[in-house]
Design a binder for these strands. Structure first.
Lengths: 138, 138
DNA sequence: CGGGATCCAAGCAGATACTG
DNA sequence: CAGTATCTGCTTGGATCCCG
């Protein structure tokens, strides 16, 4: 089995902490990042609007995740010094490029969530501790 | 660009806990799942080999994550009743289809990790608490 | 060798209260 | 409105021991 010298995780090579996938997973692998990127896909959104859109996210997590995205250069934060402060968030160019692979993942999710759920149910249903070896059927 | 009426997260529609992206994120959004799928991309791998490949994963997390993948129908577990027990893990058909979107994500990571890191450094460097307004230089 | 069970530490995340 | 700060609970995950 010839392995390419590329540091591709998806090829099965041994990878350490410095592998790209690992890095990016630490960035976007959390619960909210991908959802926020999705919510910003169409353009600038205000903080409170964002909060309403994502529903379930706490204000702390929203702020924290937005900070992370801003730090990564994926989201741009714009403060409008108006009467009540207005803050807009938007994807940067880099952030916009993230939409594509994320969309692919979403499509996979939509296409396969059904069988995944079915598999889960089957798995959970088939489980019983084989404490008694004499009763092994089913 | 016409928007489809689909419940697409990446279009910015409001999404709740039942949105597909949310579901799939709860599945593969953890630290190890994607890495394990990557490690299994080329075929069956034994438990201990898997553990060696991923490096940094504990036996508990490996077992736990593999169980989750098995439950989702993405990984098949095969026990060979040999002298010392041998257990092989392999992707199922559904699991193999996951490689594509994951590969897209990995490619994005490779292509953009540089600028992300640069952005992080710039962000971290520009930060200092403006506690004293009279001392604003540095 | 593969993995279940337990114990425990650290980090994640929610609720609340306060600021500009 | 858009945060920051703190306190705390819960989950995650590592280490260890033991079993088949």
């Amino acid at each position: 089995m010839v392995t390419t010298p590329a540091e591709s995780v998806l090829r099965g090579s041994s990878y350490r902490a410095d592998c790209p996938t690992r890095q990016i997973l630490d960035r976007i692998g959390d619960r909210w990042t991908v959802l926020i990127v999705g919510a910003l896909s169409n353009g600038s959104v205000r903080f409170s609007e964002l909060r309403r859109r994502i529903e379930g996210i706490s204000q702390k997590m929203l702020t924290q995740t937005l900070r992370g995205l801003e730090r990564d250069g994926l989201v741009r934060r714009t403060v409008h010094p108006e009467v009540p402060v207005r803050v807009e968030y938007a994807l940067t160019e880099a952030g916009r490029t993230l939409r594509e692979p994320l969309r692919a993942l979403e499509e996979w999710a939509i296409a396969h969530l059904g069988e995944v759920s079915a598999s889960q149910e089957a798995y959970d249903h088939a489980e019983q501790p084989p404490t008694d070896p004499t009763d092994r059927d089913m």
